[in-house]
């Protein structure tokens, strides 16, 4: 599979791009020209220059530095959300699909209820309830999306649980947990990988939308959605503020989408055609 992956140029290219962006975010203190939180109110809305390559915002902070530091909350929060969602969803899905019986029934009923709610509204409701804080946003997102993953994983587990090699493994006397981890998990993981990379784009857009509305990341954290919120307030006087964060979001999400598509091609050639 690794060979197929390396052969698919798109997959390699996109993974590389995502990796580079993540690295830039990680090494932000080294790469960013200025402190993203340093205000210099007399120098607001400065033009592009060598010192401030993307100019400054309404408080005189360097836009490029904020963009670079912004990779951390934007990408980081989305990744955290994905881990939580997949973790919870996978756990529930495994439980339901593997053990069946009443565990399955209960979990699936809960999944049905969760899925019957429009996700956007639920996120708002949870944020409204728990207060406007980025942790609540992540919690809300995990709370919404886990059901979908649980259902997917359950379907996958159901497909594989009665395969021969699982039966043999059980015959030999291996523990259930061993079977789960060593046999089932790898079979599911390829589908999981595709879903995850497509969904992380959704998570990024969702978190940035909430930050844009003022419900997610709070000032002065330079998350890209929050930066667009600030840009909206100066749309008439300084429209250039909304270009950089927007393009950055589009590039990042497109990279993940392309990566997901390419992974799907790699892992299941039937779907590609």
């Amino acid at each position: 599979m690794l060979k197929k992956f390396l052969e698919n140029k798109m997959a390699v290219a996109m993974t590389g791009l995502v990796f580079i962006i993540a690295l830039i975010g990680l090494f932000a203190p080294v790469l960013a020209p200025h402190d993203p939180y340093a205000t210099n109110i007399m120098n607001k809305f400065a033009k592009f220059s060598m010192d401030y390559p993307l100019g400054t915002d309404h408080l005189g902070r360097c836009v490029l530095s904020r963009m670079i530091y912004g990779i951390r909350p934007t990408l980081g929060l989305a990744t955290l959300t994905m881990f939580g969602t997949i973790g919870l969803g996978a756990f529930m899905g495994f439980m339901a699909g593997y053990f069946r019986g009443w565990i399955d029934e209960i979990i699936m009923r809960v999944v049905d209820v969760m899925l019957s709610f429009p996700s956007q509204i639920m996120v708002f409701a949870v944020v409204a309830l728990l207060g406007i804080d980025v942790r609540n946003v992540i919690l809300a997102n995990v709370f919404i999306k886990w059901a979908w993953y649980a259902r997917m994983i359950r379907a996958g587990v159901l497909k594989y649980r009665d395969k021969n090699y699982i039966q043999f493994s059980r015959c030999v006397g291996n523990k259930e947990s061993f079977i789960l981890l060593r046999h089932l998990l790898p079979s599911i993981s390829s589908e999981l990988a595709v879903l995850a990379s497509l969904d992380i784009g959704w998570a990024i857009i969702n978190i940035s939308t909430l930050s844009f509305l003022g419900l997610g990341v709070q000032a002065p954290v330079p998350e890209w959605g929050a930066m667009l919120n600030e840009a909206k307030n100066v749309l008439t006087t300084n429209p250039v503020q909304m270009i950089a964060p927007g393009i950055a979001i589009v590039v990042l999400v497109t990279a993940f989408n392309l990566l997901g598509d390419a992974l799907r091609d790699v892992l299941d050639p039937k779907e590609a055609s």
Binding site: I205, T209, A231, M242, G246, I249, V250, V253, T254, N257
Partner: peptide, 18 residues
């Protein structure tokens, strides 16, 4: 299609408005 799925709705709205 690909581009639009990656663009947040509010950004598109802002751009169009501007």
């Amino acid at each position: 299609i690909f581009m639009t799925t990656a663009m947040p709705a509010y950004w598109v709205g802002l751009l169009l408005m501007w």
